[in-house]
Design a protein around this nucleic acid. Structure first.
Lengths: 349, 349
DNA sequence: CTTTAGCACTCGGGAGGTTTGAGTGCTAAA
DNA sequence: TTTAGCACTCAAACCTCCCGAGTGCTAAAG
């Protein structure tokens, strides 16, 4: 069944009013805001019907209406205008993208902070690999006679390093040998394949060589584990408190704790085809999010990895605005990763 | 003027009762808890005197007494018993110290999360350099013909890397040359000395060599800047809400925002001689902390760097317990950095 | 001089009742 | 189908009252 145009207009007015005021909107308010040439009584009749359709709700009998999750969903799917960012906003985001970047996970966490500052909502950021990550290369750098740095590079262009201190001295040729061995036997292997390979090699190698190898391979395992574990970075959690729906602690606390502690177990549906995904209220899987909405955008990291950045807030969010901003920001990040460098501060498409 | 023993006992009883119950303690409660053989009336008289001394306060006329910041201070300085951790607690902390560690700043941020989980208070962690950090070494690793990784090591054992992509190809000998140049001219220089040196070198070098050098040196500058900027990591901010003094949002919000956004401008008095430092209420410089207390412990990172880790909470904190835990944890971190590796899971002094 | 018992007093906080006003649903007329 | 009018509802704000924990003070006892 299709809604009449007037019903759509009313629903839209309710959503947009409510997004702004955070208070139930009554029939008179709609007459005032939308340019409808009917009286409040008519609106009331229409709203009653929208309520039986499950698109609006009443907090209590004698209050105005607020959109139900289904109402928001319909608004997002059909009624919402594509938001265009103003020049100032794109400028702000462009400036922000010019952050000093070092490593991928730092990019993600930085990006989260920036989005949070820009939107005043808590954010989360994570990377998700569609394919298994592998180490593509090992480099060993001698520091002192009993210390060396291992530099590992994954196929996803991520570089990690660690300083190892040893109880015994190693020579440069030894390190050279070790490096060759690592690069021939331990590259291109997934997390699961590393340990068996390590055992296989242990048969051939001498004991001290083996202990060195296992040291570095353990590090490789750590790195891969970290990448697969989808570490979630969060930022700006306290900004939740600025919104009226979280004024009461009973509402705010569980969500804040959830956000603060959400680790790898974040079971969000993976962002698929579209760039931006919106989850409204009960569409979220986590219980703590049933009364909140999540908007997220994905971007390409390269090497088969995908980054996701999102904001969490009340169901009453400015979906149009936030979707536009996140999308723009994600686009910028994609470009950044694509080039491997930050785009020049000139304008691009 | 020295307090009588009985007054001290009373003050102590007030503090310890209040720490547990979070409610003003009255004269009867004191008679019950402390083993004093006097009546409540006597206690009342004594408490009235303690109040004129500024050690106790009354929230309102007909309520019990709570310790004033000065009261806490006296308690911390003179009355507090050194807390001993139970075996279980040290075990917990030891286990926690066995985290997978990669880089210094990750250690700090991890350590913060752990302490926060252990104490249920928000934590902050930062590193502060008493002496200026310098780059002690550069390594350049060729990846493809138009990409290389720069690995920088500071005197403080910190290793950082970055992947550079170039528009033009570089050869291995070129990189070799570049590396030599960097290691001879740009090591041992502080942040301020790097830029002038870069200009000096630019005179001698060709243009394309110069652009490569400046790329890597810019990265070096970033790294040093980051180290000097004392990036503050925070964790567990929402755990504030679990404490009754932050049940009202007006109290909690400013502090949470302060913690979430506190950057390098955290003007804490540097921890000096002692291992643990306690700042009570108005002793804090930041306005947002005037009603809260900060307990922090420092640990040695090596290379002239010092790490600080601390918790923030209401003035009503279990100072003895927290000080003991932080101190123990900091000791563990010191040991870890000293060895450059995680201590074995056996017990040590 | 110190301690104790007794008593009047204070004041925050909770329970209960009242008022207010925005907003509704319904009905009857246009 | 729309509109005006009206009775009705209910959360929120506001009072008011009461309770009881805890105090300060006084006067007697040690």
């Amino acid at each position: 069944m299709e809604l009449s145009d007037r019903k759509k207009q009313i629903l839209r007015a309710v959503v947009e009013n409510y997004i702004q005021t955070a208070e139930p909107v009554g029939s008179k308010a709609i007459v005032a805001s939308a340019g409808l040439k009917v009286s409040s009584a008519t609106i009331r009749n229409e709203m009653a019907e929208l309520e039986t359709l499950g698109l609006l709700e009443q907090p209590h009998t004698s209050a105005g209406r607020i959109p139900s999750p289904q109402g928001y969903r319909l608004y997002v799917n059909e009624l919402m205008e594509e938001h265009r960012l103003t020049i100032q906003e794109t400028q702000k985001i462009n400036d922000a993208l010019h952050l000093k970047i070092r490593q991928m996970d730092q990019v993600m966490s930085e990006a989260g902070k920036i989005i949070s500052q820009l939107t005043r909502y808590p954010t989360f950021a994570l990377a998700t690999g569609s394919k298994k990550a592998v180490i593509s290369r090992y480099d060993l750098l001698m520091v002192e006679e009993n210390a060396f740095i291992a530099v590992l590079m994954t196929d996803g262009q991520v570089v990690k390093n660690k300083l190892f201190r040893l109880s015994e001295a190693v020579s440069a040729p030894q390190l050279q040998l070790l490096s060759t061995l690592l690069n021939t036997s331990f590259t291109g292997l997934t997390l699961e394949e590393l340990t068996p390979e390590l055992l296989k090699v242990s048969a051939h190698a001498g004991e001290e060589a083996y202990s060195l190898i296992s040291l570095v391979v353990s590090f490789a395992i750590e790195v891969l584990e970290e990448m697969e574990n989808h570490v979630v970075h969060t930022a700006g959690i306290p900004s939740l408190l600025a919104h009226p729906e979280y004024q009461s602690l009973e509402k705010a606390e569980p969500l804040m704790n959830y956000l603060a502690e959400m680790g790898s177990d974040l079971n969000l549906p993976v962002v698929q085809d579209k760039n931006v995904k919106i989850l409204i209220g009960p569409e979220n899987l986590a219980d703590e999010l049933k009364d909140s909405s999540v908007i997220m955008a994905s971007y390409d990291i390269g090497g088969g990895m995908q980054g996701v950045i999102g904001v969490v807030g009340p169901t009453r969010m400015d979906y149009a605005d936030l979707a536009a901003r996140l999308s723009y920001f994600a686009e910028g990040l994609s470009r950044m990763f694509g080039k491997g460098e930050i785009p020049a501060p000139t304008e691009e498409a």
